[in-house]
């Protein structure tokens, strides 16, 4: 079993980073700044949690950002057209879920690797988003019943943070408490063994990809509500961050394996890092360089710590009898 350093080493490093920024970055520890970081973390972490669930069943979902943009356009369009927010949100989540279903169908029935399928559906989603908007953004004075989902607070806690807490709790409960979660994990860890043990591995893969798209859809609704606007590329910036959060999360708590707690904490660390660098006066491009290094470094750490190649299950092109 991996020891304390393997499981909590990068967690400690993340906490040290936060402490260092609190000590040295001007205004970092101000309440307003901390709340902003937490809100920004919410979008990222919810999207990354979806990717985590796809990776739990050993599939990649590279369509999350485009799916989120498309879902944001759908909700923005409908809210702009005075459709009730509840209906608009339902339509956006249904759109995202539909792409998740297509991803799952292509992976499990047509047996196209998810790496390819989700690149393809990402392009399709982007095309649809630009088609719906004709390239411009939906902007307007939207009802507070909708924007309040992201901008409001409940009992003094920002709603965004509550949404993150809810999605985190639901994901965690699914994976650690339910038989379905155990079957998803077994499918991702050893597909053939799971199949021989009677687990419906194809169904688990479809579920993982569906939940991944749904995470993107929830992120989209919150992003649109927060900005009172929806543009056909609005979630693009979150893509690499979401992947990085999952990869960094895989070095935490359960080394080498995608896990809910790791993803959420890693998302916080990445957002703290970006915020702290800005406050310290680093140029905007420094963030990208650091992000790339973290992505590669995380997988290297996972590989060394677990002494097994990361993504061995995910990137294996399966030949099923």
């Amino acid at each position: 079993m991996p020891g304390l350093i393997e499981r909590y080493g990068t967690v400690a490093a993340g906490l040290a980073l936060i402490a260092a920024f609190a000590a040295f970055a001007p205004n970092f520890a101000a309440l307003g700044n901390i709340i902003n970081v937490l809100k920004d973390t919410s979008f990222l972490a919810i999207m990354a949690l979806g990717f985590t669930l796809a990776l739990t069943v050993a599939e990649l979902d590279l369509s999350i950002a485009e799916v989120a943009s498309l879902a944001a356009v759908v909700v923005g369009w409908l809210v702009q057209s005075k459709v009730s927010p509840a209906l608009a949100i339902g339509a956006a989540l249904a759109t995202a879920a539909a792409i998740g279903v297509v991803n799952g169908f292509c992976v499990t029935v047509l047996r196209v690797p998810s790496l390819i399928v989700t690149l393809g559906t990402a392009a399709v989603a982007r095309g649809l988003a630009f088609m719906a908007t004709q390239g411009v953004a939906f902007v307007g004075r939207w009802p507070t019943g909708f924007t309040g989902l992201a901008r409001g607070a409940t009992l003094g806690i920002p709603n965004l943070v509550l949404w993150l807490a809810g999605v985190t709790a639901a994901s965690w409960a699914l994976i650690t408490w339910t038989r379905t979660g155990a079957h998803m994990t077994a499918t991702g860890e050893a597909e053939e063994a799971a199949r021989l043990a009677g687990i419906a591995t194809a169904r688990m893969k479809r579920l993982g990809l569906l939940l991944s798209s749904l995470g993107a859809g929830i992120t989209a609704v919150l992003l649109a509500a927060n900005l009172s606007s929806a543009a056909p590329n609005m979630a693009g910036d979150y893509f690499l961050y979401a992947i990085a959060a999952v990869l960094l999360g895989m070095t935490m708590f359960a080394p080498g394996r995608p896990n809910v707690a790791g993803t959420v904490f890693a998302a916080l660390v990445l957002k703290v890092l970006g915020n702290g660098l800005v406050l310290l006066g680093a140029a905007y491009y420094v963030q990208d360089i650091v992000l790339g290094a973290i992505m590669i470094g995380s997988v290297a750490v996972s590989t060394v710590v677990t002494n097994t190649p990361a993504f061995a299950n995910t990137l294996a092109f399966r030949a099923r009898a």
Binding site: R179, A182, H183, T185, A186, E189, A190, E192, A193, A194, L196, A197, G198, I199, G256, R257, T306, T308
Partner: peptide, 18 residues
Amino acid sequence: LALAPRLSIAANVFMGAE
């Protein structure tokens, strides 16, 4: 093919029949 090495012994014994 039978085992998932990174999962626990118990999870392997009860795989599919938790």
